[in-house]
Amino acid sequence: MNFVFPLTKIIFGDGTSTQIGNVMLGLGCKKVLCIYDPGVKAVGIADPIVEAIRLAGLEVFEYGNAQVSVPLSSVHEATQIAKDAGINGIVAIGGGSAMDTGKAVNVCLTQPGDLEQYVGTLDAGMVFGPLLKPYVCIPTTAGTGSEVSPIAVVYDEKAGVKKALPQQENVPKVAIIDPLLHVKMPPGLTASTGMDALAHAIEGIGGIARNPMLTSWGLTVCEMIFKYLPRAIANGNDLEAREKMAMSATFGIMVGAYGAFHIPHALGHSIEAVTHAPHGITCAFAMPEVCEWYADLIPDETRKMAAMLGIDSNGGRPIAEVGQEFKNALRAFYLKLGCPRTSNVIPNQADIGRIIDLALGEYTYMTAAKRPSKEQMTRMLTSACESLN
């Protein structure tokens, strides 16, 4: 059993985002690029954090146009600002879009050649870690977990596909996780990001690089999400639920990233590339069908996850039967959260063929411990569409 586990320093707790100035000083920074999206600015989260950095005596340059799916054009815009300013530190404030933008900017800013040579799966060039700028993430959502992962995903607008930037050296130096920043998330975003965290945990539990420690974390994350995500959606000011979901996002991504993502993300990235539905929703869309199909690979873990949703999963019941009931329960959980139906995720059923073709070329398909054929994956996605019509 071989694995590499690069660790980010995690500062967790209510109000911890106010420490950002001292954190950047401790990393030796003098000029900082702050990356965030317009929504984070609009709800009043970005400005206090930027001001806290300035109050510590640092110069701040802002890129406030981080975009969903991280198009390469936005990465290059932010990189140019950083180059012109001569920054020596990066802070991302927001969800996965801002944090993945920061990772890509760091590579563009510090590594020789073009970003293109560092994306891919087996053919990605290696990033030289000592050249990277100190990078700190402050997540404002509870799902992506990019604040502690070594992976970023960018969108190549010309090719119309999402590409992975899988670089262990590119894991953020520090993650400041302040659950108080999450109370402004609306219910829909809370649901979408929460389902993304659930996908990370479930996929890592069945990942090709899974190990006993990751499995234990993954099962704990699943249990917390099943309990606390409905509460966070029902009442955004439920601080216990927000704290538990923040923790689930941070530890869930470590389970997925180091255990290895697989089919839900392969389909999710591909649906997202075609229909531009929210990432967490696209990853969760056919996850029940994948879980049923994976049940025989991880029977003990499937029984445990099924029991969390109230299924009688032991007593000698065939794993195929438990897997089917787990699929149905997971689908019911998705709907209970108010997640969208087929018409808002894959409105044109004629797109299924294109989505499957893209998924077969996805790095998360290549890293699956159990790979479905094109026909099997088509049946999974078709089944998900029919069950959510």
Rank of each mutant, 00 (worst) to 15 (best):
L219Y: 03
R210A: 15
G125T: 04
R210I: 03
A175Q: 08
K158Q: 12
Q111G: 08
A152I: 01
P179L: 10
P212D: 15
E223R: 13
Y155G: 07
D100N: 13
I90Y: 03
T220S: 15
E147P: 04
I177G: 12
A191M: 13
G207L: 01
L219E: 10
S216F: 00
L109W: 01
I177L: 12
L132D: 01
K173I: 11
T141S: 11
A197E: 08
S97R: 10
K184A: 12
K158A: 10
V183N: 04
Y155H: 10
G129S: 13
Y155I: 01
L219F: 04
G145E: 08
K133T: 12
P172L: 05
A175S: 11
L109M: 02
P139Q: 15
Y118A: 13
A85V: 07
H200Q: 11
M126E: 13
N170S: 11
Y118D: 14
V136A: 11
E116Q: 12
I93E: 06
Y228M: 11
P187Q: 05
N106R: 03
P187L: 07
V153I: 15
D156P: 03
I205D: 02
A199Q: 01
V107W: 08
F226G: 09
Q168Y: 15
G89E: 07
L109N: 00
A104C: 05
A232F: 08
L165P: 00
V171Q: 08
V183D: 07
T215E: 15
H182T: 14
A197R: 03
K103V: 08
K103H: 07
D196H: 06
G86K: 00
K103I: 08
I93S: 05
V171D: 03
H200S: 07
V107D: 14
L189T: 14
E147R: 05
V91L: 05
K133R: 10
P212R: 07
D196F: 03
M224R: 14
G95H: 02
A159K: 14
G207C: 03
